[in-house]
Design a protein around this nucleic acid. Sequence first.
DNA 1: TTTAGCACTCACGAGCGAAGAGTGCTAATC
DNA 2: GATTAGCACTCTTCGCTCGTGAGTGCTAAA
Lengths: 345, 345
Amino acid sequence: MESRSEQILNTIIDHYIQTAEPVGSRSISKKLPVSLSAATIRNVMSDLTDSGFLSQPHTSAGRVPTDLAYRHYVDRLQANPTPELVDLEAEEEQFAELAKRCPRLEDLLQETANELTQATHCVGMLLPPRSGPSRLKKVELLGISQTQVLVILVTQTGMVKNRILPLKECPPQEDLDKIAGILCGQFAGQSIEEIHLNFLERLTDDAKELSAQAIRIGKKALEIEAAGEVYVSGSANLCEYPEFFDHHSLYKVYRQFENKEALASMFEALTKTEGLHVQIGGENRAFGLESCSVLASTYGTQGALLGGIALVGPTRIDYPKVIEAIGRSSRKLSYAVNHFLIEGR
Amino acid sequence: MESRSEQILNTIIDHYIQTAEPVGSRSISKKLPVSLSAATIRNVMSDLTDSGFLSQPHTSAGRVPTDLAYRHYVDRLQANPTPELVDLEAEEEQFAELAKRCPRLEDLLQETANELTQATHCVGMLLPPRSGPSRLKKVELLGISQTQVLVILVTQTGMVKNRILPLKECPPQEDLDKIAGILCGQFAGQSIEEIHLNFLERLTDDAKELSAQAIRIGKKALEIEAAGEVYVSGSANLCEYPEFFDHHSLYKVYRQFENKEALASMFEALTKTEGLHVQIGGENRAFGLESCSVLASTYGTQGALLGGIALVGPTRIDYPKVIEAIGRSSRKLSYAVNHFLIEGR
DNA sequence: TTTAGCACTCACGAGCGAAGAGTGCTAATC
DNA sequence: GATTAGCACTCTTCGCTCGTGAGTGCTAAA
């Protein structure tokens, strides 16, 4: 793809992102820095249509970028990132301000997601950091009925996870306390994930004190619960986009937003590797969001708390702006997670 | 208001609920059990319009019920409740099934809300039971940094609440354990609300052991956190209703659904007294939902866990059906809460 | 290779008229 | 006096036509 047609394509995309209307050759001719007649642009546009970068709603209308065009546009954007004017000091200050307002990590995460959706007019999604890699601080076992034990795990970052374990018969509270004590003594300071993987191997020296049932309870207690909740914010924003004025397409998207399994699997796919991931239109078919673009970024660091943040909008999203915004938020969240890690040590 | 015009009004409402189209005199004449000509119906409809029960989109169109009409309709519905064919045994069985699937109270609540939204095509809202009235089982204090204490409260119903307490200086863990131990010893089995109200009076005999700071921590630890999260489910359902095809009205409503403060204050207003509450159209202006009807019911019992469940739909909602559905759900949730109370004792 | 010119296409909006649903009023009927 | 039939009237809706204009594709000249 030679440079001139690429330039024209990008101009078309920019224009379409602003107006949401099919773009004609004349408006591009006026907008281009080099002087080219509308006829020339038309020839190029015709070629671009043939190669699948543009499409026409009808024969005599202007052109609309296809998913492929956006793909190209975003790839170029990511290959030549604009030198971001990041004022790290100012950011850190802002963050300190935020951290003061939100004593709990969860609140801070939500607050950040809310800010992001307001700034971008997209729908924000937040995957809280997985507790797996964070280190155990305390285990508590409480019998709450003849057949149920309440397990409370506290991590060194101050996260509290709890679930109820169904049992055939619940041992007396003293035994539960003893099991919890042994688990704590042996595993505090280790990552929950690791403990769980090698539970039996690690549990050797004090194991004789424990009955088979106790070992079973201990092992179950440390099971990491299913992938966390996805927090969705700003879903009303989608109503503003002309591409979703049609209530049926809106319905389809909103349905997906309630399909927590789909969202979780989306995040799983998008946070496999660190950094920013952009998925455009049809690339999201697996998650039922083929009319949307999804931009996702990880935050935190591998091995520590790793979470994900994503923005969902129409494919005609303002990629440069949104990419910058999500970058800033992801830095903010990384600060936050580190902050809580250090403070929580 | 004499009986005949009331009958006609109710028939109009029923018809409008089904079709969402202005109702004409002829269709009512055909639908009424007694035989009346369209002209007669017209006279009555004209009177009803004068007294504010009906309105006309334009002069030559049929009539549409006003909020006042729905108010009448619902009041009559609640005054003469249809003898519900409630098969309590079957319900209890269904509930047992559900309880088996959802070991945690929270999951059960959400699952029930989801079922309800699917059955009614409304938006469901759930206010989890307030923890205030439930009895304390355990208090845990964990220092997680130089200036922060993590407070974990466990109730006898197996609810775990946690928050981080900012402090000038965090005492050593042994002191925290001691404080927690004393709190537990003195207050276990009492309702959190009560403890908090009379904290100082109740804390006498062991108080000498505690420093001023410890007492302050203890008091703060038992503070009931702000009104809980409201869980919203099925918001996509609104897209299906013709009254929300206009994207702007949809936007307004969805905005409100994200305004958690408004929702919380709505629940506060609607769960002040036990039982079912119906708020129609303009009656919801304070919560920004003047284009909707809200049906809310409490569940659980005063003094135990009291929560709320609500359905939001267009004012043209199928009141009889939805009232029955919410009644069933509220019974189910009350079972659940009792179940968890008894099991958790 | 680029550009000017031109014929052609097609959505969009305005304007118009017929159809139809529904009303309000009046006069006749029970 | 209530009810009803009849009728004129209103107003939306739908389909139709037609002009407009944005935009295209093609061709021939620069």
